[in-house]
C-alpha cells in the first residue's frame, strides 16, 4: 500500500484546497494517520474506497478519543482493503469543540460497518455524526445525559459499601465513612 504521505498528496491533488494533515505517531509502530476536515470527509472517504489502487473497502474499527486539553473530540477509523489485501490506513476527524452539538461527518454511508460503532461513539463520547441514518444511543438508555468515556465524566456515587477498598475506590469510599473517633487502630488478634 502507498504510505500515508503519498495518500495525503493524492488526496490534496484530488481535492484542492481541502486541508489533510498527516498526524505522526511516536510509538514504535509509527503508524501515521490522516486528519480529514469533516466538511469534506465523506467525499474523501469515498475516494479512498473507490480509488483502484487503494480500494479501502472495509472499515474494521471506528472509535472515539477525548482530548480535553485540546478541547476537541476525535473520531478514528481503521480502513483495510479486502480486495487488495492491504491496510490499515487510519483516518481521523476532529470536532470543533466538546460541546453537546459537536459533530463530524458520518462515514456510515461509505462503510456500513461503521453504523453501530458511530452510535457507540455518539453514546459514550457524545460525538455527533451528521449524515448518520439512525443516530441514537446504543448502550445506555435514551434518557441518559452523560457521556461515560469522556475524561471529565463523574460517575454516580454509590461507594457507600466497599468491604476492601483500595486506590481510587478507597478515596471514594472514605467520603462515606462515619466520622471515626481518633483512636489507635484495632489491635490484631494474636494467634
Amino acid at each position: 500500500m502507498e504510505t500515508p504521505e503519498q495518500i495525503r498528496d493524492r488526496l490534496l491533488a484530488r481535492f484542492p484546497g481541502a486541508p489533510v494533515t498527516l498526524v505522526p505517531n511516536g510509538a514504535p509502530g509509527g503508524q501515521a494517520s490522516l486528519l480529514l476536515e469533516p466538511s469534506q470527509a465523506r467525499e474523501m472517504a469515498e475516494f479512498l474506497r473507490d480509488d483502484p489502487s487503494l480500494q479501502l473497502d472495509f472499515c474494521s474499527n471506528m472509535t472515539g478519543v477525548d482530548w480535553p486539553q485540546a478541547g476537541c473530540l476525535e473520531a478514528v477509523y481503521h480502513l483495510y482493503s479486502m480486495a487488495r489485501k492491504h491496510g490499515p490506513l487510519v483516518i481521523r476527524q476532529r470536532t470543533a469543540n466538546r460541546a453537546d452539538g459537536a459533530a463530524v461527518a458520518s462515514l456510515t454511508p461509505v462503510w456500513r460497518s461503521a453504523e453501530f460503532q458511530e452510535r457507540e461513539a455518539f453514546d459514550l463520547f457524545g460525538i455527533g455524526f451528521t449524515g448518520h441514518p439512525d443516530l441514537r444511543r446504543i448502550l445506555m438508555w435514551d434518557g441518559f445525559e452523560d457521556h461515560p468515556m469522556r475524561k471529565d465524566y463523574a460517575e454516580p456515587d454509590d461507594y457507600e459499601w466497599e468491604p476492601t477498598p483500595h486506590d481510587a475506590v478507597l478515596a471514594k469510599a472514605r467520603l462515606h465513612y462515619a466520622s471515626a473517633p481518633v483512636a489507635p487502630p484495632a489491635k490484631e488478634a494474636s494467634p
Binding site: 434518557g143 441518559f144 452523560d146 454509590d158 459499601w161 469510599a173 465513612y177 462515619a178 471515626a180
Partner: peptide, 22 residues
C-alpha cells in the same frame, strides 16, 4: 439522567456504616 432513580431500595438495602479509625 445519570443513574437509577432511586439507586437503591432503602427498605431492603442497609449498607453497614464503616468506621475506620486512623
Amino acid at each position: 439522567g445519570h443513574d437509577l432513580v432511586p439507586p437503591s431500595n432503602p427498605d431492603y438495602f442497609h449498607p453497614p456504616q464503616l468506621v475506620r479509625a486512623g
